[in-house]
Amino acid sequence: MALSVLGVAAVLFRKRPGRAKVETSPGILARLSYQALFLDLFYQKTVVPFSVQVGKATNWLDSRAWDGLVHLLSKGQVVGAQLVQFADRYLVDGLVNGVAKLAKRVGHWLSTPRSGQIQTYLIRALAVTVLVLAILILW
């Protein structure tokens, strides 16, 4: 679930055209590092390359593997949403509209006996009566 949060956020972020600029203001840290120049050099020689390598690795992991997974997940959500919407339109709503159609069909079938032929009317009426009677007796 948390992944999907990330995913949605990531999708949004990636698609957002104007990315927010991160401004780094020269604060105390900057001044300190300015003073401790040798340390800086030391770090540059030792830690930084390693960190950069690790960073590159995590970056790759982040942008390809994790993000890919997250993108996949969020795209999955959208596809899922389309599916749910499809079900909503054709299954849930279709059922309701289907009932209405069925009622009309039955109504049509019930009012067609109006052929205008009295003998047919009589035969139908008597036949149904006899049928109901038979059912009643066999009940």
Binding site: S111, T112, R114, S115, G116, Q117, I118, Q119
Partner: peptide
């Protein structure tokens, strides 16, 4: 003829 007297129908 009862079948031909048939003007009232659906």
């Amino acid at each position: 003829d009862i079948d031909r007297i048939n003007s009232v129908r659906e």
